[in-house]
Design a protein around this nucleic acid. Structure first.
Lengths: 386, 386
DNA sequence: ACATTAGTTTATTCATCAAATCAATTGAAA
DNA sequence: TTTCAATTGATTTGATGAATAAACTAATGT
């Protein structure tokens, strides 16, 4: 039970001050006081505490044309570092980052066939990376991106690899002495998009890959549902008695709109085995009518999915993350144009900007938020492939 | 911006104390202190303030077998009263209630064809009712249930009557000098169910009538989305290129599962005009095979809708409110059995208990919550037709 | 009389606020 | 060039109010 106390108000105000400093990059005490509506005395006291904790540093003064020059404050971005590891079906990707998502380093390995000793694989991976040295806090959090359902920081269901029953978090926590956060990949994606790109209160982020997942932000917070299964949007039904899905349903959305199924349809048309996305893309750009038909299907099915999201969640914005939107970003305009309901007011439908980095960047945010205690983090996007 | 301050502490703790008193019906200061983890001194001070404000009364002592007998505290349920008016397509229903949803009185009138002077119609209706007298606060809130979309406490879209552009809230507020809350009917329903019946953190409440609406509770709070259109679940698509819907889409859920459409299908089978639900019900109970087929369709379509809700929202519980569930409550078991996905873990699917009173009772809760400032209200259900 | 539980009183702590003060800077008047 | 008013930033000081701990009073049964 959260009751009111002196400690609570200090907590609230300290987090707000820290949040203000981070989200404004460089700001003075006076400006923070004005922004938050607290007195300068209060802000000075809180800032002193943050400086003592080595979370905030003074970075010189600003150029103003009247009165005493303000001392600019900034997050001490090298106070510690965080790690996100995306455990993909084929590849495990690890990203080390400072506290603002800058100065990252990436390493990738093959996902082992047998995942029973995943904890030691991850420990070896982390220890093989170049980690920042001599920081006040060192490693302050690890996030694991999982292709599956998470409940109580454990994998409760994963279709592509067997991680259920293994207590990954505890294993890593005791070895690195830092909190470990497990989260679904689609959920990390939406956190990444919100933090680095689209700072809205309510967001729906569709991740279309082999399956289809939906990351949901409600009132600035990730929504995961009763037991972590919110956003299993690929298994909503869009066709009565439709195509059989391995999940047991007929007519699941991902039997129509997922990359895997669209490529399968394309391969059928071509009477070949397993066309990959690159082949499809080349054919499409060469004007191949079959590829064109597949693209039309993608637009048609996605517009149904988007319609269902709008009428169910009514988010501020819908973000689509898929190979299709990576290579043909303007496809979202076609999807928007294909919406038929006149009940939908104008809502932005946009392609992901972070693309395949959204999971890792989202994971970085989770660990940073956990360490700093900041509710609503805003950071600048740094393109990893720049 | 909500910053920490002394007032905030008092606010938080006062609301918690009030909430504890309401939700426990009768409780002592010592028990509140234990329940909230605050000291007895704090609780005594807050309770004194609440008694001074005439919101809480002492109602004698409890029977214990050792030590001083505790003084039981209770909400002063006659400190004021609230009103909810459900503006239905055919009927306007008004309910006056004390502060715990007991001691209600109901009045119904026909909805006027022309709703341009709706404000004066509502004023006349309220003034024609027997209202409690000589209470400390008198009328403390009015909730209006609207069959349409609400944004910023105004009607932004209503399919069955024209209320857009009329500032109903302001008109009533200035006349009665009490806050007026506008809310969608499906949203009021889910608030009613949560407060009086199913106290879960995440709830999806399907209201099936002429259309299909969904009231959504996320983290104990109503979720309405970016511009109040969350839960327009009747216009999610369950059939690609399916039945034409007036909204412009093809294959909307409510073209299959709404009462109106099922009765229309039934009438077609019978080659008669406009069978009503009573006729259908009689035929079904007499074993009519056509009626049986319609019932099977309802189960089939609803199981698709429920599947989509489970995979999108993953709520703690799904509540279904319709004529079908009122007269055949066990139908929810059939709907549950018709779910085909093996990915769905066990989630309760239940018929509404409040049935057609859920809107009015939900509206009462909104006004009470607004007056008392209590976040998480729990009340006991009083059956209006008892 | 004593153990036990309920509720109140009192002194202390701590985070906020308002106001005064100190600090630093500009620019115009002397 | 010097001086000083104006301005803005940051700190210090005393007051306020709400929570706490601990001591106290109140009531009750054995």
């Amino acid at each position: 039970m959260v009751t009111g106390s002196k400690e609570l108000i200090r907590d609230i105000n300290m987090n707000l001050v820290l949040e203000t400093i981070i989200n404004n990059t460089a700001i003075s005490r006076a400006a923070i006081a004005k922004h938050l509506g607290l007195t300068k005395a209060t802000i000075s006291a809180i800032v002193q505490e943050l400086i003592n904790k080595k979370l905030v540093i003074e970075i010189g003064s600003d150029d103003t044309n009247l009165g005493r020059k303000p001392i600019l404050l900034s997050l001490h971005k090298k106070a510690g570092f965080v790690i996100c590891i995306d455990i993909g079906v084929d590849t495990i990707s690890a990203l080390v980052s400072d506290l603002i998502g800058e100065d990252c380093s990436l390493k990738q390995i093959k996902t082992p066939k047998n995942t029973s000793n995943i904890v030691s694989v991850l420990i070896d991976l982390i220890e093989s990376m170049k980690l920042p040295k001599d920081t006040p806090y060192d490693l302050v959090g690890i996030t694991l991106g999982i292709h599956g359902v998470i409940a109580n920081n454990q994998v409760s269901f994963a279709p592509y690899y067997n991680l259920s029953g293994i207590n990954i978090a505890e294993g890593l926590e005791s070895h690195f002495n830092a909190p470990v956060y497990l989260e679904n990949e689609a959920n990390l994606s939406v956190i990444g998009e919100k933090t680095f790109q689209y700072d809205y209160a309510n967001i729906a982020n569709i991740s279309v890959h082999s399956g289809i997942g939906l990351g949901i932000i409600v009132n600035h917070q990730l929504y995961t549902g009763y037991n972590g299964r919110a956003g299993e949007f690929g298994h909503t039904i869009i066709e009565i008695d439709g195509r059989q899905c391995p999940c047991g349903n007929q007519g699941c959305f991902e039997q129509y709109a997922s990359e895997r199924n669209l490529l399968r349809e394309y391969s059928k048309m071509k009477n070949t085995e397993e066309q990959n996305f690159e082949q499809f893309r080349a054919a499409y750009e060469a004007g191949d009518p079959d590829a064109n038909k597949i693209m039309d299907d993608f637009v048609k099915y996605m517009s149904i999915g988007v319609n269902n999201i709008l009428n169910a969640y009514n988010p501020d914005i819908v973000i689509i993350n898929s190979s299709f939107t990576i290579f043909f970003p303007h496809i979202t305009e076609k999807i928007e144009a294909a919406l038929t309901s006149r009940m939908n007011s104008y809502i932005r439908i946009v392609p992901s900007v972070l693309q395949d980095t959204s999971i890792l960047l989202g994971g970085i945010c989770v660990a940073i938020k956990g360490f700093l205690g900041v509710d609503n983090l805003k950071l600048n996007h740094i393109d990893l492939r720049g």
